[in-house]
Amino acid sequence: MKSKFNKYINISMVLLRFWQTSLAIELEYQLNMLIELVSVLGNLFGSLFILSLFYKSGPLLGGWNFFEALIVLGIYMILEGITTSILAPNLSRIVNHVKNGTLDYVLLKPIDSQLWLSLRIISPWGLPSQLIGILLIIYSLVSIQVDLSLFNILIFFTCLFASSLILYSLWFLLASTSIWFVKVWNATEVLRSILVAGRYPMSAYPRGLRTIFTFLIPIAFLTTVPAEVIIGRVSNEYIAIILIIAAIFFAISRRFWKFALLHYTSASS
């Protein structure tokens, strides 16, 4: 029990070290901060503008009013921020490790390789998007008079955790295929382009797309379902569903990585 505890302490020390070093690199480029802020604000106003166009043609978008749709957008922006902060900088480097052969060094470290590859770097440039996302959600919740109780906040962060885990697992699954296919390192970009659909409530899409976004690529569980839980459109039991789906995806990503490594270590030269 104690050794397990020590292990976690040790891992968090490692992570702190990682992040300290990666922040040190990023903060050398101050111009990026400005560009990132402008880009996040631009994206926000653009999205609000497009959303307002939808509502010009009718009072509801797939049965959602404007503020409810804003919550979906807010969750999307938070996930986008997490992508910029953690997923993109770490997972897009896996292919470089494979190409340069430095994956060997990662595998020879006495630490879980998936952890190392997924959390080595943290980039501050995703923060503005996460912050604005949270503000947007608070603003909308107040506007539609949802009770901001501690319980609801807890529910919200549980949902957010689950949907981040699903997002991470999807990214990691695609990124780890680069162990076989170095040439299609940009497969994660395709995922990213499809995830854009998560900006809007799923019910706003025609049935065909809705089916794809629910069962094939679980975008519905990334933004829409969490939003439904917070607003109270569906019962709280839905949290369990999101959590189970998240657990399944995470388990698949770990299994797949083990499988990929087996291939790597039995075929690499």
Binding site: L61, I194, V196
Partner: peptide, 27 residues
């Protein structure tokens, strides 16, 4: 780079997603 380019092409689906959304409205 054709495999890579094929994926780049595939990642240009935004107009199709938007088509899906707009098709459900009274545009």
């Amino acid at each position: 780079y054709r495999a890579e380019i094929a994926l780049w092409a595939l990642s240009g689906i935004l107009p199709l997603i938007m088509l899906g959304l707009w098709s459900q409205t009274n545009i």
